[in-house]
Simulated assay, not measured.
Amino acid sequence: MAFTQLIPSPSSSLNPITLSLNPKSPTSPPQHFNLDFLRHRRRRPASTLRCSASSFSEKHHTNSSNSDDVLELPLFPLPLVLFPGAILPLQIFEFRYRIMMHTLLHTDLRFGVIYNDAVSGTANVGCVGEVIKHECLVDDRFFLICKGQERFRVNSVVRTKPYLVARVTWLEDRPSPSTDLDLDGLATEVETYMKDVIRLSNRLGGKPEKEVGDLRRNLFPTPFSFFVGSTFEGAPREQQALLELEDTAARLKREKETLKNTLNYLTAASAVKDVFPSSSNSS
C-alpha cells in the first residue's frame, strides 16, 4: 500500500462542504458528495488532494489509443479514485515511489493511479496520471501535479518491487445499445440536479442562494460524466464503480440517482430548518 502526504491547504476557508450520499441508511458509514466548487468556481491553487470542479479540464478529450493495445505501466495504489480530465496534486516521499518518479521524468511521465483500501484491496481498473508539473526538493521529495488521462484495466502483474508494474489494456466506453437514447438530454438532467443540490446546500449552510452558472462547460456527455463522478469526494467505492462502467448512459443514470437522493435529503433537512430554525442554528 502506498502512502502519500496531503498537500496542506493555505486557508481553512477552503474546506469542502460535504453531504451524505446515503441519507436513508443511518447505520451505514457516511459517504460524501464534494461541493467544494459551490463557493469557489474560480481556479484554486493545487493545494489539496481532491478532484473538484475547478480542477477538471474544460475540454478534456481522451487519447485515441487502441483498446486492444497491451503495455506495461507503473502503478501507484492510492486511497482515492482519479478520473479522466481531473487534476491530482501529490507529494511523493516514500522511497520506492521516489525511484519511480526519477524513472518517469526520463520517460513518458505517465503512471497508473489505482484505488486501494484495506477492505477491498487493489482495484483492477484505474486511470493514467500524467505528470504536467513537478518540483524536486533538496531531500528528494517530489511535488507533482498530475492530470487524469485514459482508463485502463490490469491484465497481469509484471513485478512488485521496487514498485508495482502491470500489463494493462485501455478501457473505453462502448456505444449504448439503445439507438434512441438522448445522452445530451440525460447530461442536462444530471446538471440540473447538481444545480439544485448546490442551491439547497448553500441555503442550509447560510450562504446566499445565487444563481448557479454553467457546470457542464461545453463538455460532451462522457467527459461530463467523469467530471460529475470526480465531485463525489469521500465516497471512493462509489467513484470506483462509476470509473469501471463502460457505458456513459449507465454512468450518468447512476449519478442522477445519487444526486436525486442527495436532493431529497437536502429538501427534508431544509424543511426541518424552516420549522425549527433555532435548533438548526445551534446544531
Rank of each mutant, 00 (worst) to 15 (best):
Q5F: 14
I7E: 12
N15S: 15
L21A: 05
N22Q: 10
P23N: 04
S25K: 09
T27W: 14
P29A: 14
P30F: 11
H32E: 01
N34D: 13
F37W: 10
F37H: 12
F37Y: 11
L38W: 07
R44E: 13
T48H: 08
R50W: 05
R50Q: 10
S52K: 02
S55R: 14
S55W: 01
S57F: 07
K59T: 14
H60Y: 15
N66G: 11
L71W: 11
P74I: 13
L78E: 08
L78V: 15
L80W: 09
P84L: 04
G85R: 07
G85V: 08
A86S: 15
A86F: 00
P89G: 09
Q91P: 01
F95G: 11
R98K: 15
H102T: 10
T103Q: 12
L104I: 10
H106R: 14
T107P: 05
V113P: 03
A118T: 15
A118K: 15
G121A: 05
G121P: 10
T122N: 04
T122A: 03
A123Q: 03
A123G: 05
A123D: 10
V125N: 04
C127N: 02
G129E: 03
G129T: 02
H134G: 00
L137N: 12
V138T: 11
L144K: 04
L144H: 00
I145M: 07
I145S: 06
C146P: 01
C146G: 05
G148N: 01
R153E: 04
V154D: 04
S156F: 01
K161T: 14
L164N: 01
A166K: 00
R167V: 00
T169N: 15
D173R: 06
R174D: 08
R174N: 13
T179Q: 13
T179F: 10
D182F: 10
D182E: 11
D184S: 13
L186H: 02
E189V: 11
V197M: 00
I198V: 12
L200G: 00
N202S: 15
G206K: 07
P208G: 02
E209R: 05
D214K: 06
L215W: 08
R217D: 09
P221R: 03
F227N: 00
V228F: 06
T231A: 14
F232A: 12
E238K: 12
L243D: 03
E244C: 12
E244N: 08
E246V: 12
D247C: 10
A250L: 09
R254V: 06
E255N: 08
K256Q: 07
N261I: 07
T262G: 03
L266M: 02
L266K: 03
D274I: 03
D274G: 01
V275N: 02
S279T: 15
S283F: 07
